[in-house]
Design a protein around this nucleic acid. Sequence first.
DNA 1: CTGTATGCAAATCATTTGCAGCTTA
DNA 2: TAAGCTGCAAATGATTTGCATACAG
Lengths: 142, 142
Amino acid sequence: MEAAEAGCPARKWSLVKTMYATTARRAVVDLLKGERRYLTASTIFALLKRDNPKLALSTVYRTLETLTELGSVSSRTEPSGEASFVYCNDEHHHHAICTVCGHVDEVDCAAMEQFRAALLANQSFTLDEHSVEFYGRCTRCR
Amino acid sequence: MEAAEAGCPARKWSLVKTMYATTARRAVVDLLKGERRYLTASTIFALLKRDNPKLALSTVYRTLETLTELGSVSSRTEPSGEASFVYCNDEHHHHAICTVCGHVDEVDCAAMEQFRAALLANQSFTLDEHSVEFYGRCTRCR
DNA sequence: CTGTATGCAAATCATTTGCAGCTTA
DNA sequence: TAAGCTGCAAATGATTTGCATACAG
């Protein structure tokens, strides 16, 4: 573990050569775009297995890794320790997660600027990046 | 994976019966209190192994689990997938992590209230819990 | 065709667990 | 002493990897 980059959300772009629009990839993306909530690799695998009987779990993992590098997918770690993934555009990385249905919305956080100023003033901490997750109830579940 | 509790930071208190103040536990707590930065179980194990040659990695894991339940320790997941832990008091759960030295400070976030109001007004999201991590440079590393 | 992606099975690796012996209160 | 710990080694379980085959462009 590197202290200097203790989990700071890295934005890495592989030197993408060519990206084949394969059946498996389309399936994963379509599913995630439709769900809009965090799903584990095995859940995704199970859901897609129906229509793609010969799909392999390793392919799901490889696809999720690729999508994450591209910034189309964001991941988190469930309390159980498993990784889970949501579809999201590359710009936003602040999520409002419904504790009832699991629905994930992206959040606009202009207010974060105030935090940055307060942090610097109060404890001389220069804010560079932040990782935020909000838990609550979405419109439908209130 | 449970959608309804998609990683919402649970605060669980085991029905603590008796807690023996063993050598291993004291060692782990002392180390974490001194470091104040996220350390993985194996790093902790390696550091303590010096003075406690017969310490077992499984004991470190069990101790960290206990401390987490008690609220004395908070954990996160490194990009590598390993879990890492910091000492912290039970009250605060907002960390300012230095991207240079890894030092973890606790953050007072009264400003979060403004977020709550904005979220509700802008996208009808009722904020219950939030998990926040700030990355930046601490006083010493600026 | 040629570079990629996939399936399958085997390999990793962090974390957990069973159990007999050792400690703490 | 008795209820809790610990070490050790074996068991788990998620994620990764090697490789021969199947596709996409």
